[in-house]
């Protein structure tokens, strides 16, 4: 892990980038327009980036519980199971809070049972 001063620096740069993205069009006010390709691609940023960000750490998580199949199917660990359950809850309920609660509780149940 990076040292704390370095994390501060990274945080400040991310803050600056974010401020630039947010103020971009407000500051330039009509002097530029969004390139068409960027506009089309924006819709796919959340699904693609989030899936690429979340899924690998889940499937490569080193299981801390005794699932009987973990030797044969290491990717089917407690976090993938709880995560899949959370996806179902989000899909049915559309509630972010309920999804986080359901995912955490199902992970605890798996950790304490096994």
């Amino acid at each position: 892990m990076l040292s704390e001063p370095l994390i501060w620096l990274v945080t400040a740069i991310v803050g600056l980038i974010t401020l630039t993205l947010r103020s971009s069009f407000i500051v330039l006010a009509g002097r530029i327009s969004m390139p068409d390709l960027l506009l089309r691609g924006l819709r796919f940023v959340p699904p693609a980036v989030l899936a690429a960000l979340i899924v690998p750490p889940l499937v490569f998580h080193a299981s801390v519980v005794n699932l009987p199949w973990v030797e044969a199917l290491p990717w089917l660990n407690e976090r993938t199971l709880a995560g899949t359950f959370a996806v179902l809850v989000m899909w049915r309920s559309r509630s972010v809070l309920l999804t986080i609660v359901a995912g955490m509780v199902s992970l605890w149940v798996l950790q304490w049972l096994l």
Partner: peptide
């Protein structure tokens, strides 16, 4: 990688910025 990921996640703010700018 951290900077690039954060930038991609926050690209949507450019859309908001564009529709708020007028």
């Amino acid at each position: 990688a951290i900077l690039l990921t954060a930038t991609m996640i926050n690209l949507r703010f450019m859309l908001y910025s564009a529709s708020l700018s007028p």
